[in-house]
Amino acid sequence: MATIDLASAPTQGAAGGQLVASAAFLRRRAITGAVVRVFLFLAAALSVFITAAIVYILVYDSILFFQKVSIVDFLTDTEWTPVFEKPRFGIITLVSGTLMTTLIGLVVAMPAGTILSIYLSEFAGHRTREIIKPILELLAGVPTVAFGYFALFFLTPLFQIFIPNLSGFNLLVPGIVIGIMILPYIVSVAEDAMRAVPDPLREGAFALGFTRFQTAIRVVIPGAFSGVTAAYLLGMSRAVGETMVVAIAAGQQATLAYNPLEGAATITAYIVQISLGDLPHNSLAYLTIFAAGLTLFLMTLVFNLIAFWLRKKYREVY
């Protein structure tokens, strides 16, 4: 940063020995400030621009799609057969697959993540936390394709021992694996939120005779409510967008998913599948990618809006 240049910047004041900044020095500082501000603005603008560009492409190609397919059919049809001779476009099939795996993932990750966060934040000693946290973060670093094959070749056969009518491709196992995958995200955010609850609040609870567990449930979690909710919704957004695990282990069959023991395609799995084939550009099947992508985008957007609203409503100021 700018240092005071003794030769040019400060001039000797009348009082003697006083340092007074020169006009040139102040001007240089103003220029540096302006350059920094422009640079920071560009960095911020770039992320907004990229988001806007993605939305533009999704919406543009989706409009082309909806010029050929009625939006009512898109939302109400129960079949998804875009490459058949008589194509049907019921997005509800893919959405049901996505919601099913997301739901199973959350059923695994929310309780486990909450318990783990409470343990790490309120019970674990310093050393235990220093061991467990990096291991959890390592879990977040495992490539998702590895999780996919873990689900397909290890967990599914294992589960089939106990659930004989479990299909080779199914929604249950990928859902559970997604739950394991989003666990580190949930724990990381939820534990931070719990640890941010100030100690005087805990001391107040202990002074009333609360046990550690009562303090965690009655004081820490309500205090960290907005952060814990944000953790769940972050996990949910990741579960909705998860691709590799479902593409590998949930199957490619676009059917209405109501039985988790059967396979079904999710929105992401469909996009992968259709993108890998050689579709003519601007064919109707090609345009489904964008309509499906837009649906996925809107789902995540809704979750994020709910998260935003909850955070605002329940934010605690200590």
């Binding site: 005087p200 609040l201 001391e203 609870a205 009333l208 005779g209 009655r218 309500p222 205090g223 605690e316």
Partner: peptide, 25 residues
């Protein structure tokens, strides 16, 4: 019972704050 240097009410309603010590007993 103890009262601390800085006010440290729980992130709950006024009623629940006062009732907390009764609940735990």
């Amino acid at each position: 019972g103890m009262v601390f240097q800085k006010p440290n009410p729980f992130p709950k309603s006024i009623y629940e704050n006062v009732a907390a010590g009764l609940w735990v007993r």
